[in-house]
């Protein structure tokens, strides 16, 4: 009881929190930038590759999905540099880890989206004389991606939340900054309340954006019947 809230201290260091947020968004953004296309490549390899590609790719996807992200992060930050005799900074390690980790999940989203398209769409485009690449590019993916928007968004938000692990390798993301401010000021309650609020605002705005996007994409009427 009787706890005296004091946000003044938090807001004195608010620029640090904002910097942390920017770093969080940076890692998340890069992870998505690489993870989504890589996910598509993995999905296509798993769906249409020859066995010698399909099987290892399937294994990699399952491996990335079935190991804790923090173990992957540590591996890329501490183990890989030893193995390859290179230097890597926390940001690079984080981007590599979360790109790969999210690509495995995005691959499954892509695969599910592609598989959900009615076989008649493949048939009709094939009958017109399209080859597989054209079919995917013009007919299948545009429809699949529309259906995947909600799953994508969920995944992207998941990526953002998972990036909070980067603090463990001393990358100054939002949570890391919050933690150091809290340890300095002992204002744990205020600091983490504000930090959580910042995550919430960003994710909430994204969700709203996606809802509008879904509505916009749904205007041709097929997304709801899908």
């Amino acid at each position: 009881m009787g706890y005296e809230w004091d946000f003044a201290i938090v807001f004195r260091d608010f620029d640090l929190l904002l910097l942390g947020l920017v770093n969080t968004l940076k890692v998340t953004g890069f992870a998505l930038l690489f993870g989504v296309p890589l996910g598509l490549v993995l999905a296509l390899a798993r769906l249409y590759g020859v066995a010698i590609i399909r099987v290892p790719v399937g294994f990699v996807i399952e491996f990335l999905r079935s190991t804790p992200p923090i173990a992957q992060l540590f591996w890329f930050f501490f183990a890989m540099p030893l193995l390859l005799d290179i230097e890597i900074d926390p940001f690079e390690a984080a981007v590599i880890t979360f790109s790969l980790q999210s690509s495995a999940f995005f691959a499954e989203v892509f695969r599910g989206g592609i598989a959900s398209i009615d076989s008649g769409q493949w048939e009709a485009s094939k009958a017109l004389g399209m080859e597989r690449n054209a079919q995917l590019r013009r007919i299948i993916l545009p429809q699949a991606i529309k259906r995947m928007v909600p799953a994508f968004m969920e995944r992207a938000i998941e990526v953002m939340k998972t990036t909070t692990l980067v603090g463990t390798i001393s990358y100054a993301d939002l949570l890391y900054e919050a933690n150091s401010i809290a340890e300095e000021t002992y204002r744990y309650l205020e600091v983490f309340t504000v930090a959580a609020g910042m995550y919430f605002v960003v994710i909430f705005i994204c969700s709203m954006g996606v809802r509008h996007l879904e509505h916009y994409l749904g205007r041709t009427g097929e997304i709801t019947t899908g």
């Binding site: 008649g120 769409q121 048939e123 485009s125 094939k126 009958a127 080859e131 429809q143 041709t220 097929e222």
Partner: peptide
């Protein structure tokens, strides 16, 4: 060959029971 068959299909029109229009 795949490309030969694709070229051939382009010369033949096909209409399906379930129309299969591109909904997007």
């Amino acid at each position: 060959s795949d490309s030969e068959l694709a070229k051939m299909r382009a010369r033949v029109g096909m209409v399906f029971q379930h129309f299969n229009l591109f909904p997007h």
